[in-house]
Amino acid sequence: MSTALVTGASSGIGESFARELASLNTDLILVARSQDKLEQLAQELSSKYQVKTEVIVKDLTEPAAGQAIFDQVQAQGLTVDLLINNAGFGDYGTFCDRPLSKQLAMIQLNMTVLVELTGLFLPLMQQRGSGGIINISSIAGFQPLPYMSVYAATKAFVLNFSEALWAENKDTGVNILAVCPGPTESGFWQRADFPDNFPGTSSSIMSESETVVKEALKAMKKKESTIVTGGIANQLLVNVPRFVPRDFLVSAVEKQFKK
């Protein structure tokens, strides 16, 4: 039986990954800050699917959080066959008006700990000649987003980093996948402090996190480097900007995202 480590597993896409993988008979290592939510989810999935579930309570915005998780996994003698770097958050508003501490924490969570965990677990997968890493990027990673400048930049990093690793690992037996969802039902919008009436937060245009997960796992089986989930609308959003002058594109996006 294989084992998957999922960060940000207490809600949203991370929780949906945990549920879907448990239903596929995969043991789980669940990582997040919320101990109560993690333990409740772990007990539920263990009871329902008879899979082994381990809980690691950790704030991934802390320095060296990835090393601490790796050390705990190693101390327990666990092998991670699938690493899902899902934890992340965004922030809405003019860069200079938002707390710098929050922007730096976002960089730590969205980028630094993702690289750290990848750098720690990938060599072990290469040694075994098998394994997989799923990094959650976003359609925001395909273009700059005024009023979400740091978030979009972190997701562009995740996208480029993941695609490069996919190419490096094609012959190692390890699959790397960048998943780029569009608007998805989760707690993302509240944590990012979006206005309640912001057009992009309408539930009518959001994907369900379960759908994102199913599409991601299907792409992983096909050994694809990247998947943009959410149908034709999101495909247009990430591809049309390639043919638009940069100044025009960013100016148009600024008008769309401005309060």
Rank of each mutant, 00 (worst) to 15 (best):
250 V>D: 02
184 T>R: 02
56 I>M: 09
183 P>E: 06
113 V>Y: 02
1 M>N: 07
151 Y>K: 05
132 G>T: 07
50 Q>T: 13
183 P>K: 02
190 Q>W: 07
49 Y>S: 03
191 R>L: 13
220 M>W: 15
21 L>D: 05
230 G>H: 06
210 E>I: 07
31 V>F: 04
19 R>C: 08
230 G>A: 04
64 A>I: 10
154 T>A: 05
97 D>G: 07
221 K>G: 15
30 L>R: 02
99 P>F: 07
112 T>I: 14
63 P>G: 04
212 V>G: 09
230 G>R: 03
77 G>R: 09
161 F>H: 05
6 V>N: 08
117 L>T: 00
123 P>H: 13
95 F>R: 06
44 E>A: 09
244 V>K: 06
175 N>T: 13
167 A>W: 11
161 F>Y: 14
233 A>N: 13
1 M>L: 11
250 V>E: 09
147 Y>D: 03
189 W>A: 11
215 E>K: 14
39 E>A: 02
236 L>E: 09
143 Q>R: 12
61 T>C: 05
246 R>N: 10
244 V>L: 05
245 P>N: 11
82 L>E: 01
87 A>C: 07
136 I>W: 03
17 F>T: 02
200 G>W: 09
73 V>S: 06
206 M>N: 01
256 Q>Y: 14
147 Y>V: 00
84 I>A: 01
125 M>D: 03
172 T>I: 06
130 S>N: 14
206 M>P: 00
67 Q>S: 12
55 V>M: 04
76 Q>V: 06
67 Q>V: 11
111 M>C: 12
257 F>Q: 15
102 K>L: 09
116 E>F: 04
22 A>K: 10
210 E>T: 14
198 F>Y: 14
16 S>H: 06
94 T>L: 12
76 Q>I: 02
34 S>I: 06
243 F>R: 01
58 K>E: 13
78 L>A: 06
114 L>P: 00
26 T>A: 03
162 S>W: 04
125 M>H: 06
253 V>S: 00
16 S>Y: 04
51 V>N: 08
195 P>L: 05
2 S>G: 05
144 P>I: 00
227 I>R: 10
50 Q>P: 04
52 K>T: 14
242 R>S: 08
32 A>V: 11
18 A>Q: 08
179 V>G: 00
247 D>F: 15
121 F>M: 09
124 L>H: 12
194 F>A: 09
43 Q>Y: 12
206 M>S: 02
